[in-house]
Amino acid sequence: MAHTVEILSVGTELLLGNIANTDAQMLSQGLSALGLNVYWHTVVGDNPQRAKEAVELARKRADIIITTGGLGPTCDDLTKNVLAEAFGKKLVYDEESLERIKAYGKATGRPLTENNFQQALVPEGCTVLTNDWGSAPGCAFEADGVHVIMLPGPPSECTPMFRYRVVPYLQALSEGVIASHTLKLFGIGESAMEAQLRDQMNAMANPTLAPYAKEGECELRVTAKAPTMEEAQALLLPKVEELKAHFGPLVYGVDVPSLEFVVENLLREKGLTIGTAESCTGGLMAKRFTDVSGASQVFKGGIVSYTNEVKHHVLGVP
């Protein structure tokens, strides 16, 4: 059976744009690596009725629902209540979580009030996901053929909770792996790149090929699904080599973080160093160089020479 996943993010601050939904991005990347298909991202505010409607829709179209947010101590933290009601489960105190919350408050020196303890309420019969990075535990249960997983919203808690608590739970449900390689190109536009590949992209099934436009450059992502990572790579690598040969020097790297990362590695390999004198860029080149760890080995420094006076007297420009 192929599983379908919906990520349901709860929080009015997400709808208002006060914070970015980085949890959903992280979860999608992690679920893809497990071979689980994410079909929907839903964001709902801290409103019981709208949250209930979102859950009812999700359970009709997905057999794995992963929620983020709404597990805290305040009255607008409603995720557990809504999901417990939707699946007919009673909320009960998990004694271990209750003791951990008390110990967490003592260790951090924060006085605890009664509403802090509601974080220890979990759906009856669920698997409690211990939170070693915060106070609110996560939980997981299966009901009516749907797996429900609830995670806290803060990324500093959600990310390790997914990695160390949820991944083992989901690995039993996964049917293979999804792997990808990304080719980075400079010197060609997305439309020109896509025009050269359109016919083969339409004909490809596994692996697949997708173009992306980035600021000043383009990407080609090759993705394959297979029972094992070795089989996925066997599908991917020949296509990666074919694309590198097709685009030649326009491809500046595969699975590399940035153009400046590649440039600095080349400078290091050749024993060269670089300095910058910038005007209209306002120091942007120097910033990009120094954003890379270890830049001091190859980057000597830079001057932002915005006025003619500085260009004449500091740089010696005629």
Rank of each mutant, 00 (worst) to 15 (best):
L8W: 08
V10K: 05
T12C: 04
G17A: 03
D23L: 00
A24W: 04
Q29S: 13
L36G: 05
V38R: 07
W40V: 10
V43S: 12
V44N: 01
R50N: 08
R50K: 14
I64V: 15
G70V: 12
P73K: 12
T79F: 04
N81H: 14
V82I: 15
A84C: 04
K89A: 11
L98F: 11
E99A: 09
A103D: 13
G105D: 08
R110F: 09
P111V: 13
L112R: 05
E114Q: 15
N115E: 09
L121E: 13
C126T: 07
T127C: 03
V128N: 04
V128R: 06
L129F: 13
T130Q: 13
N131I: 09
W133D: 03
G134T: 10
E142S: 15
V148S: 00
L151G: 00
E157T: 09
T159I: 13
R165T: 01
P168Q: 07
L170Y: 07
G176H: 07
S180G: 00
A192Y: 01
L197F: 04
R198H: 02
Q200T: 11
M201G: 01
E215M: 13
K225T: 11
T228Q: 07
E230N: 10
L235H: 05
L237M: 14
K239M: 12
E242A: 15
E242Q: 15
A245C: 02
H246E: 13
G253V: 06
D255T: 04
S258R: 02
V262P: 02
E264K: 11
R268C: 00
K270E: 15
T281V: 05
K287Q: 14
R288C: 04
V292T: 07
V292E: 14
A295M: 12
F299E: 09
S305G: 13
N308H: 07
K311L: 08
H312N: 08
